[in-house]
């Protein structure tokens, strides 16, 4: 951790970056994101097992962007998000300084996208056994049971859009759900509108979600939103052999066609 603080201080002192996004002590038990702009304050940066938030969500936020060049403390989730943002032309190599950190708090020097790609290749990013269990539970349901289960889950939603705000992939300046000409998704939180919103969110993240779980963590009603996106990851893997967020120049599997693609969904 000291390495990170030292590196952050150095970057701010020599004005390589204007802001360092990292973890700091929160008011409760969990850590929160902090934005260090003063080299003297870099010792506020911490890293422990509560530092789970995917900080990549801030990279494209207008409020953060206008502060200047960014350095970011990057867990594997952050790194994978960066890979997708790069693949989607939102980031170029050198746009930001990445302060890589292992799960046990060791600093890793990742000077460019290539280094990130190589580092990610050494990690096991498959979904966890616990997540597999959850998927199994849902898969075991009949179509009707599954529909009823999700209807029940979504009935709790009151459209605060915290899931959207927490997601590094929801970076559109104008979300389809905010469009009222035409009004694609009803704004009111009723059964139909809730279902439509969550279906749309899941579809828009299909093949892009890296399973950081921020959406579910952000949900004040504890809807297991990430189950939908877990499933997408599973399907992407099974059908296209793709693990998303591993390369800075990945081609979006759902908008490409290869001759060897399985077409078993066409019946």
């Amino acid at each position: 951790m000291d390495d990170i603080r030292k590196k952050a201080k150095e970057l701010l002192e020599n004005k390589t970056v204007q802001v360092v996004i990292g973890y700091g002590k929160g008011s409760g038990e969990e850590a929160r994101a902090i934005f260090v702009r003063d080299a003297a304050k870099t010792d506020q940066l911490i890293f422990d097992e509560t530092c789970l938030q995917n900080l990549a969500v801030y990279i494209l936020k207008h409020e953060v962007k206008h502060l200047g060049k960014i350095a970011i403390v990057a867990t594997s989730s952050v790194l994978r998000s960066i890979m997708i943002l790069a693949s989607e032309q939102q980031l170029k190599d050198g746009d930001l300084v990445v302060l890589g950190i292992t799960s046990d708090g060791k600093y890793i020097d990742l000077p460019n996208f290539k280094a990130i790609e190589d580092y990610l290749a050494t990690l096991n990013v498959s979904i966890t056994d616990k997540e597999k269990e959850l998927l199994k539970m849902i898969d075991a349901m009949t179509m009707e049971e599954r529909w009823a289960w999700w209807q029940n889950e979504f009935s709790k939603c009151f459209k605060c859009y915290a899931c959207r705000s927490a997601c590094p992939m929801c970076y559109c300046p104008k979300c389809t759900t905010d469009s009222n000409q035409p009004q694609w998704i009803p704004v009111a939180s009723h059964q139909l509108g809730n279902m439509e919103w969550h279906l749309m969110r899941a579809m828009h993240l299909a093949g892009r979600c890296i399973n950081c779980g921020e959406c579910a963590k952000a949900c004040p009603m504890d809807i297991p939103l990430n189950l939908l996106t877990y499933k997408m990851i599973d399907e992407m893997n099974a059908n296209f052999g793709v693990t998303v967020g591993m390369k800075p120049d990945a081609v979006f599997a759902l908008s490409t066609f290869k001759n060897e693609d399985k077409e078993n969904f066409i019946r």
Partner: peptide, 19 residues
Amino acid sequence: RTAPPVFSTCVGCFLCQPV
């Protein structure tokens, strides 16, 4: 095309390009 500062709701992700 939309009014500034958005200019276009296109975010330039270019996922449409290969499709």
